[in-house]
C-alpha cells in the first residue's frame, strides 16, 4: 500500500539570497554551502517526527518566483503551510515578503486557519538590519508565528519545521473544540490523514 502522507505541502517563500534553499537543504540533507548556488531542485521531501507521530513533508521551493506573482499563486493554492523567509541582514528582504503575505491572504482567505511562520534567517550574521523585535512585531501584525534561524549554524532549523506542524495541530485542536461548522471539521480530518503514523 502506498503512503498517502506525502502531500502535506509546505511552501517556502522569500526574496533571492535570503537562504530559502539553505534552510531547506539544511533540514532535508543536513548540509550547508557557503557559496550561492541558485536552486536546482524544486521540491523536497522530508520525514519529521512530531508529537510522537511521524509526518512526511513535501517542501516546495519557490526560488525565482518573487517577481512573478501570478506564478506564485500557483504554488500558494496547493500549499498547506507557509514559511516566509527574510534575512536579518536585509530590511528590504522583509519588505519583499509583504506582497507575498497579501497573496497568501487573498488566496487562502482566513490566514489564522493556516500555519504560517515568519522566519528571520542568517541569525549568525553580525551585520543585522532587522532586530528580533521588528520581526516579532511583523509576525504579530500578520497573526503568524515567528522564529529566527541560521541555516549555517543549524540553529532552529528542525525546530522551525516542527513548530510549523505544531501550529497545524494546535489550530486543528481549537477547530475541533469550537468547530461546529462541518467545513472546518472536515479540514481537520483531512489534515489528520496527512500526518500518518509509521
Amino acid at each position: 500500500m502506498p503512503e498517502q502522507s506525502n502531500d502535506y505541502r509546505v511552501v517556502v517563500f522569500g526574496a533571492g539570497g535570503v537562504g530559502k534553499s539553505s534552510l531547506v537543504l539544511r533540514f532535508v540533507k543536513g548540509t550547508f554551502r557557503d557559496t550561492y548556488i541558485p536552486t536546482v531542485e524544486d521540491t523536497y521531501r522530508q520525514v519529521i517526527s512530531c508529537d510522537k507521530s511521524v509526518c512526511t513533508l513535501q517542501i516546495t521551493d519557490t526560488t525565482g518566483s518573487h517577481q512573478f506573482p501570478a506564478m506564485q499563486r500557483l504554488s500558494i493554492s496547493k500549499g498547506h503551510a507557509f514559511i516566509l523567509v527574510y534575512s536579518i541582514t536585509s530590511k528590504q528582504s522583509l519588505e519583499e515578503l509583504k506582497p507575498i503575505y497579501q497573496q497568501v491572504l487573498a488566496i487562502k482567505g482566513n490566514v489564522e486557519a493556516i500555519p504560517i511562520m515568519l522566519v528571520g534567517n542568517k541569525s549568525d550574521e553580525t551585520q543585522r538590519e532587522v532586530e528580533t523585535k521588528d520581526g516579532e512585531a511583523q509576525a504579530n501584525q500578520w497573526k503568524c508565528a515567528f522564529m529566527e534561524t541560521s541555516a549555517k549554524t543549524n540553529h532552529n532549523v528542525t525546530e522551525l519545521f516542527q513548530e510549523l506542524l505544531n501550529l497545524d495541530k494546535k489550530r486543528n485542536m481549537s477547530l475541533n473544540i469550537d468547530g461546529k461548522r462541518s467545513g472546518k471539521q472536515s479540514r481537520a480530518e483531512r489534515l489528520k490523514g496527512k500526518c500518518s503514523v509509521m
Binding site: D7, R9, P38, T39, D42, T43, Q58, T60, D61, T62, T63, G64, S65, Q67, F68, M71, L74, S75, K78
Partner: peptide
C-alpha cells in the same frame, strides 16, 4: 502534483 508544478518553477528560474 509536486512534479506537475516543476515547469512552473523552472521557467521562473532561468
Amino acid at each position: 502534483d509536486g512534479f506537475l508544478l516543476t515547469p512552473v518553477q523552472k521557467i521562473c528560474k532561468y
